[in-house]
């Protein structure tokens, strides 16, 4: 194992700890929590809001791995996905597949235009 390899393992190990810390904290707090309906409803709201914010950011903002894809492509694909989702009686798989295929088709089309 060389030095870079070791420091990479260190980064990974610390990242894992930095992640697990939140889960650990959750389990510890929850086991001391009174079985209070309102409190856990609030936590569910916070969790949903965090996740929605995260997903919206992944889709809307031109950053990270999806930076190369124009916003309009992502929105069109997602729109088609939602339409199929509701047409097929709220079927998650159908909606996801439709969004994925639309996005793949648009991206491929752009790629071929460039080439």
């Amino acid at each position: 194992m060389n030095e870079t390899d070791m420091s990479l393992w260190l980064v990974i190990f610390i990242s894992i700890l930095a992640t697990y810390m939140w889960r650990f904290l959750g389990i510890v707090i929850a086991s001391h929590m009174h079985p209070d309906g309102a409190l856990s409803r609030w936590f569910a709201c916070v969790a949903y809001a965090v996740l929605a914010g995260l997903v919206a950011r992944m889709i809307i903002l031109p950053e990270g791995a999806l930076a190369d894809a124009p916003l309009i492509d992502k929105l069109i694909a997602l729109g088609i996905g939602f339409v199929v989702f509701f047409l097929v009686k709220r079927n998650t798989s159908a909606g996801t597949a439709a969004a994925f295929l639309s996005f793949a088709a648009i991206t491929l089309w752009r790629y071929m235009l460039q080439a």
Binding site: C45, A49, A52, A56, R57, G81, F103
Partner: peptide
Amino acid sequence: PAFFAMVFAGVRQRAGVMALACGALIGP
């Protein structure tokens, strides 16, 4: 993100729907 968007679109409880909508607006 597409899959998660569909999973969230399936949420039916009022509180969850509102939290998702607010989060999607405020997040970006």
